[in-house]
Design a protein around this nucleic acid. Structure first.
Lengths: 247, 247
DNA sequence: CGCAGTTTTGATTCATCTCAATTTGTGTGG
DNA sequence: CCACACAAATTGAGATGAATCAAAACTGCG
């Protein structure tokens, strides 16, 4: 286990006064549910942030696992590349969501995290978090819960990829995105997609042309407005209806 | 948090002397890497086993989350059913593998676990495991690692479902199964599938007829022998070749 | 021994992919 | 600030892998 000072000097990113207690993403982020005293201890461990420009990697698959990251602003994709060069986008991440947890088990990141817009993350040095979790039961519980929810989330994606037709996949994705934007105080119906059609296609198990055609079809059906990356949901109930339609 | 005695009297399954230290699945199971003293404490918490007959549920989606289970013998599937009645098999589990971890976050199981043959599991009461983990760093580390690996495993399935063609999916599945059997001292090439073609199809995102046809094709190509649920791998390199083939 | 559930196989359809051309948008350097 | 070059998105036509529908064969359980 590293000493705090060692890690600080080794990583040496911009040092900020990190104050989770006043962060508006607090309730979506790791310290959710912690009391004032525990949050203070937590802030002491989360001592820095890091900026990542669009297109840059926060970490790559195979990199040594040292920290988990919480998205403070911006947008990320995570993706996996197999031995044959196939890329699979495994998720999209926005404010308050945690990145890198799949690296704990193997001490190396299992996937890569790429910023899809200029972004900023809070660095959560894993050794310190782990140590603190052993002392603070509410943090320990929260950490297990976050890992477990990630598993449940992945199962949802497996359902999407394994059992849904193309238009159900896109409808599910749009509704999910809408919900997450809402939780962050943004419009539930009006947003800018940060990923390309190809990245979205990879995530949904579809080719980019298919994604593009689906957007056009949803548009023609009056469900959404699309203009390149800008999407406006006109008929959320209609999108839900797609999921209810017998297949 | 429950007192040990409360949980014991509440659950009251057959009481066994559980001795992880002498279990041949020890190195695949949760207590992997624990020293003698810690294993003893662990055994004290894992105080019981439970038998599940073929076709029965170890737990159902939505059940209150109380324990994680380790497969002692037998074979399970886990599956998810969405609002529209679609079933998605999310995994198959054999000796030493852990079931139910997706329930930690929501305090309810997120999926159902069904025995595909008469099976036995060790009951790992979560409240006690959590408590012990806070005191035993090696167990804490192992628990985080197990959760993290489950996430990484799920990402592998997402790759399979999102980026592979039907025959690549089946080849991947067979090779994975072979590896897991090998790790448990069984033949790497000769095994009995416990799931139906439909269950396997659900897991692989294919229809049962497609799975059946793929088995026939692999048979015709001299890669495997199949007779209903019995499979013998004749040419593992050939199966790997399928994955390497440009798509 | 018989029946229900499972698997195999065939014929056909259809959703999605592939290939290709065009349009639209974006970042960069003059 | 504009023009150019490159990246991204759209749309069309046609190919194809897997789904669907249907029937027959097998298996093992009661």
């Amino acid at each position: 286990m590293y000493a705090v000072t060692t890690i600080r000097s080794a990583a040496a990113p911009k040092k900020f006064e990190v104050t989770c207690s006043s962060c508006n993403l607090r309730e979506l982020c790791l310290p959710q549910g912690l009391g004032a005293t525990d949050i203070a201890r937590f802030e002491n461990v989360v001592y820095a942030r890091r900026r990542i420009k669009r297109g840059e990697a926060l970490f790559a698959a195979g990199d040594e696992f040292k920290a988990v990251y919480s998205v403070r602003s911006g947008f990320f994709k995570t993706s996996l590349v197999d031995g044959e060069g196939r890329e699979q986008v495994t998720g999209f991440f926005m404010g308050g969501e945690l990145l890198g947890m799949d690296g704990i088990g193997a001490a190396r990141y299992n996937s890569a995290a790429i910023a899809l817009e200029d972004s900023e993350v809070c660095i959560l040095p894993y050794a310190l978090i782990e140590q603190l979790a052993a002392e603070v039961p509410s943090l320990q519980r929260r950490l297990y819960a976050v890992l477990s929810r990630e598993i449940a989330r992945d199962h949802g994606v497996m359902m999407l990829l394994g059992s849904m037709r193309a238009e159900e996949r896109l409808a599910t994705f749009l509704l999910n995105l809408s919900k997450r934007f809402t939780a962050r105080g943004y419009s539930p119906s009006d947003f800018h997609l940060r990923m390309t059609r190809e990245e979205l296609g990879s995530y949904l198990g579809l080719k980019l042309e298919t994604v593009s055609r689906l957007f056009s079809r949803f548009h023609d059906d009056g469900l959404i407005e699309v203009q390149q990356k800008h999407v406006r949901i006109l008929d959320a109930a209609g999108l839900e209806q797609i999921l209810a339609t017998r297949h």
